[in-house]
Write a protein that binds this DNA or RNA. Sequence first.
DNA 1: ATGCTGACGTCGC
DNA 2: CGCGACGCCAGCA
Length: 121
Amino acid sequence: MDNRNNLDFFVRVWEVTRSIPYGRVTSYGAIAKCLGTKYSSRMVGWALNKTHGVYPQVPAHRVVNRNGALTGKYHFETPSAMEEALKNEGVMTENNQVVDFDKLFWDPQKLADDLMNNIID
DNA sequence: ATGCTGACGTCGC
DNA sequence: CGCGACGCCAGCA
């Protein structure tokens, strides 16, 4: 395609992260995989680290690791900001881990599909 | 310039 | 099934 691949990696991470529905969570690896570089999951976290003060705000709190653990909570303004934000969305966390992570997990690759179906249910 | 680290994940043993 | 090593690639000492 075009320079899409030339675009900064983190910009795409932001777009995907912003696409995460309210009350849902996803993993770094899922985003990386969605971008085509599944082994670059570290870069996803690196990109999210730069979301500090970006606009529109990037819901980095909705991104956890593959285990559903809030590994990046200490990188927020406050260590409790992540769990608080998740809790505010109805996502309960226990022991730095998202409860029912499997049910709340949202696959970025399903973005188009979800948009089409509009998830009306 | 080189090497280690890091908000991770996968593969190998 | 637990643990170690590798890959990804930008930052930083």
